[in-house]
Design a protein around this nucleic acid. Structure first.
Lengths: 333, 333
DNA sequence: TTGTATGCGTTATCAT
DNA sequence: ATGATAACGCATACAA
């Protein structure tokens, strides 16, 4: 790759002033057709391409780039989010730089810093579990920021959340409505925001029916589907008649346990997953509109980039209970 | 977001020359500790952050950014690829700008052009099905390019492919070894490169056993899992005793048909998928090491960025036959 | 309508 | 070791 020709090269080749080339390149109208043609020819013969990095440092110009920090782009949840953001951004002529924090605070912080140095126009963040640096202590000007999925204490940012409480509540209620008296909760550590919220919804549903929470059937240490499978296997032998699987891994774990033992319980999971539709019965889930979260985040970022100064908001997006059959108990023979 | 302080501001605040600040910021050693401290203080009090966009336009400096054009980041195949590339890039201090072409040539072309204007240091591309502009006709200097998954006629690029032929051959052979005489092929249009290659492997396996290809049991119009399900339902009533599902959607379609009809055939799919492990029996697949493809692509790009001038190569990565049980016929009762 | 001169924020040259 | 000055590629007042 040899050196790129510059506007100056084009100007010289076309026997025109630099400014005229700039006008031409930026689509200005008032320009002599003869010169325009000479410029066009020069551009073609030199293979000129404008340097947006150089253009972006001029006052009033920007990189037309968004930064996106998520946990792991290879996770379907985040890749769906990315797609929605990327698509919205592309419609505005913006690119997205995405980086996976792997839930590591220090990595997240490095990305934030680097994105700001790169002068992105806005940053969309799924805060890592292991919290990074306090945003309020960041020095210097900070571009518009939107947090997704988990709240962060940083007043100048907008926040987009899913209704974890409501989703969990409706799932648990549905299981109870189908006759379950003892609904187990299977999920990850309650130190995780979404888990805490879903657990709250679960408790609320029980409370509404006057059912006390039984810690013995609350599993909050299932960090993998294998963990969850083991837990569900035990629950199958306990006095439990339905399962609320508080995340994807818990749902898969339950299915694994069902397959292993040849027995099943009514169950509803939180978050949809590909395999949910293929089972027999198919798995009912609380579904988040992930694309909508991403789209909304992008929309807000662009509003901030444009006006900036309306009060910051927290948006809570509704969830949907998708019933596919797994919430129904097997008929007693 | 107010205006960002510049190096000049820092220099003034610290009562130092601009160049000294630059030295400090770039980690140069030979610098008076007293001045260094003054600079550090000024940076902190002003909230200065270097402007990498500005730095990148200097000769010898670059954006330290890679461009990635894929079909659809929300597709697990591509998001896995992205993760591998992103991770490798991050280790080198590079960011990745990713864009989804949605298999549309014109979109792909726009992204290519824009990435070059942004002066990315390298571009990794999964060529869209609907071909874009001929790379050989692109004017001007082109950064290092690597194609993944599908070959493109552009001599100055490297190409990374999976062994589609070999994978399909081994899957088909396995089905035959398990007693199948008539193995059906279920996939998408043969105008798609990967389909064509997998079909070739299928044919080779049949030929090796002296089995003629029967067009009646070759489905090459299954564009969705629903299409595939319909096709497989028909095949269940035909004289077929095994199925080679040539892509993900075909595999899922087969599972849907099996569930629908309550009957199954021995089958092996191409490309792994989440639900494959959950079925009963679990689905055997030809698995590509997608992460390795991404890692390799990144590795090559960085080699090109560094030296550039070794002959271009096409790499064909091996596939693995993962047997989980679905290739075995049901025992005859 | 076109051109000249200046500046964006940074790094590099070269003299001190 | 430090600093004045130029240059990177581009866009824009302002002059012509």
């Amino acid at each position: 790759m040899s050196d790129s020709p510059t506007m100056n090269d084009v100007a010289r080749e076309a026997n025109v002033a630099l400014k005229t080339v700039s006008r031409y390149v930026n689509g200005q109208t008032n320009i002599n057709p003869v010169l325009a043609q000479r410029i066009a020819d020069a551009i073609a013969s030199l293979g000129y391409r404008r340097n947006l990095a150089a253009a972006s440092i001029r006052p009033g110009w920007t990189s037309k780039t968004l930064g996106l920090i998520i946990s792991d782009i290879s996770n379907p949840y985040y890749s769906t989010l990315s797609k929605a953001i990327e698509t919205y951004a592309a419609d505005q002529g913006f690119f997205v730089i995405s980086a996976s924090s792997d839930e590591i605070g220090e990595k997240h912080d490095r990305f934030v810093e680097r994105l700001m140095e790169q002068r992105v126009d806005g940053i969309i963040v799924v805060p890592p579990r292991e919290p990074g640096r306090d945003w309020n202590t960041l020095p210097g000007p900070i571009p518009p920021v939107v947090f997704i999925d988990r709240p962060v204490d940083f007043p100048q940012a907008d926040i987009i959340l899913a209704d974890n409480v409501g989703g969990a509540r409706s799932a648990t209620e549905e299981l109870i409505s189908n006759g379950a008296k003892k609904v187990a909760f299977v999920g990850d550590a309650l130190s995780i925001y979404t888990m805490r919220e879903r657990y709250r919804g679960y408790c609320e549903a029980l409370a509404a029916r006057g059912i006390p929470v039984d810690d013995g059937i609350v599993v909050s240490a299932a960090h993998s589907s294998e963990d969850a499978a083991a837990a569900v296997s035990q629950l199958l032998d306990a006095d439990v008649d339905a399962i609320f699987a508080a995340n994807n891994r818990a749902s898969v774990g339950a299915l694994l346990a069902f397959r292993e033992t040849g027995r099943r319980l009514p169950m509803i999971g939180f978050d949809d997953f590909e395999a949910a539709k293929l089972g027999e019965p198919a798995v009912s889930v609380v579904s988040q509109d992930i694309s909508e979260m991403g789209r909304k985040a992008a929309e807000i970022i662009f509003e901030r980039i444009a006006h900036a100064e309306t009060p910051r908001r927290t948006y809570v997006l509704p969830t949907t209970l998708v019933l596919r059959g797994s919430e129904i108990p097997d008929p007693v023979l």
